[in-house]
């Protein structure tokens, strides 16, 4: 039995865990390739209506896998923590995929809802859907496996290292997908700048929520806002870039919330909105100007 996992959205949070768990049960697991122009193109062609870019791209990943696997693993992401929800597009993802793409293999669409059921029950149902007996596996827990800097990436830092670092905040499926984010991370590193990511702890997120006029409703947005707060306060970060993808409902609120209620004046800050039309040149111009700004600012301070 060959199970395919599309490399998008929640994959960037749970992908490593999912693969390990399914493999431990004796299943063959494959993922789609990293996002590339073909996948983007297929995604745009198959998406049902005006969705956000990462969801469109997810359809492209499904398309790249569907003829090659016996089943697709697309859990219905409802809650990743007890007191808030994921965006409705995650909740409806398996249905949208089924509606949009024809001739699909069976879709394993088990609901992931930590309030309603335990992790164990989730996997029980997954394997029930697959038709496999559950096999006890040791606890595999590695949230955000993609935060780790990849070696080959950092080796691209050829030019002399400048003495500062930039924090990049945003949803994991945008920040860690190097094609979807137009290679912005690679571009910053090429300029000799260190890139800092941050995944805040549950406690830090709660603390951050208490500083806001009101708790945020969506789990991923909470993480983004908390990571921006950490970057504002951290000594390790000299400037902050917030990545937002066009068509993201929650983030259109988050960007406003961050800019209005948080102390972004404290450090150079820039938000970049990415969609499929974003030109590389325009993006590079802004990134370079941002880095120049920090550089010149620091030089004047040093004088």
């Amino acid at each position: 039995m060959r199970i395919g996992i599309p490399k998008g959205l929640l994959f960037y949070k749970f992908g490593e865990l999912w693969q390990a768990r399914l493999r431990a049960a004796g299943l063959e697991v494959v993922t789609s390739p990293s996002t590339n122009p073909e996948i983007l193109e297929a995604g745009l062609k198959h998406s049902v209506c005006d969705l956000c870019l990462p969801v469109k791209v997810f359809f492209g990943h499904v398309h790249a896998l569907k003829d090659d696997v016996d089943a697709l693993f697309i859990p219905r992401g409802v809650r990743t923590e007890p007191d808030s929800y994921l965006c409705p597009k995650f909740i409806g993802l398996p249905d949208m995929v089924r509606a949009a793409i024809r001739r699909l293999p069976p879709v394993i669409d088990t609901e992931y809802n930590v309030k309603e059921r335990s992790d164990e029950d989730f996997w029980k149902e997954v394997f029930a859907q697959i038709g496999h007996k559950i096999q006890k596996t040791e606890e595999i827990n590695s949230p955000y496996p993609f935060c780790k800097d990849k070696k080959e990436d950092s080796e691209e830092t050829e030019r002399q290292a400048r003495a500062f670092s930039v924090g990049v905040a945003g949803r994991p499926y945008l920040v860690y997908d190097n094609y979807l984010n137009k290679g912005i991370i690679r571009h910053i590193r090429r300029l000799g700048i260190e890139v800092v990511f941050q995944t805040p702890s549950a406690e830090y997120i709660r603390e951050t929520m208490d500083t806001l006029p009101k708790w945020i409703y969506w789990s991923m947005a909470k993480e983004v806002v908390a990571s921006v707060r950490w970057m504002i306060e951290s000594e390790e970060v000299d400037g902050i870039i917030l990545l937002v993808n066009a068509g993201c409902g929650p983030d259109s609120f988050m960007t406003e919330l961050i800019e209005r209620t948080m102390d972004i004046q404290k450090k150079p800050y820039m938000s970049i909105n990415i969609d499929e039309h974003t030109s590389d040149v325009g993006l590079q111009t802004r990134v370079e100007a941002f880095i120049d700004m920090i550089d010149r600012r620091m030089k004047t301070k040093a004088l």
Binding site: H277, S279, R286, A289, D292
Partner: peptide
């Protein structure tokens, strides 16, 4: 094809924005 706003204080760029697509 594009427009920019550059904010300068004490002879140093402190903020900017640029129109998108």
């Amino acid at each position: 094809q594009d427009s920019k706003l550059i904010i300068i204080r004490d002879g140093v760029v402190v903020d900017f924005s640029m129109n998108t697509v």
